[in-house]
Amino acid sequence: MPSWAPLAALVVVVGLIVLHLAVRSTRTWVWKVLTGLGSLMLVALVYFGLFWAPPEAFMSDVGRIIYVHVPFVWMCMLAFTVNVGAALAYLFKKSWRTDALAESSAEVGVFFGATGVLMGSIWARPTWGVWWDWDPRLISTTVMLLVYVGYLAFRSFTEDPERRAAWSAAAAILGYVSLPITWFSVQWWNSLHQRQSGSGTMDKPIRVVYFWGAVSFLTFLFVFIVKRYEIARARQTGALELPPLEAPKGQVTT
């Protein structure tokens, strides 16, 4: 995997989110197109991953889990990066939209992260021989997910929207420290988990399907974040009776 790939994925998903928030006319159709595209790519991923791709030399067919496990954890990390970006934006220029974006990206990230960790655990059983072991990568990932679960809990328990937005943004910045630790844990410490793969350590067919899986779930990352964002916006403007900074124009389909 080229080292710029995570950055490219981040640019794409942030670009799409900004487009969705800034250009009203795209809100009704872009997410539908991407949901359709993502669904088709997901169906194709099942074919590519389970049948087209070769088995791995030693893991054999069990190695096919990489096509879903790694993209899920990537999407989790991308979502948390969107979260910290939204938190910073909120603190420097107060807006209920970035507050809602921070909330939605954190929840989507927890979904992807928890599912990805579960898949990793299933993968570990036949390869490592155990379901779980407290190696640095697994510890740091668990801590990272717990941090964001705590972040969401903090948000849901704080009544005052001003306080919630400001202090959860501070918590988001502090919590984001767990992400580089998770990413680099396999390089800094001895671990059972393998290091990040690069283009040189993956045969071409495996790499291509791996990329395909990442792009498929990237579309769902975008759709989930913007749909969750609309829920968060509706809660802000409705239940909390906040003065809407920017009124949504009934674009939400039912």
Partner: peptide, 13 residues
Amino acid sequence: GGWAYVYACYFLA
């Protein structure tokens, strides 16, 4: 073998 693990993961995904 070990397809059950693979199916479990794709099912989860």
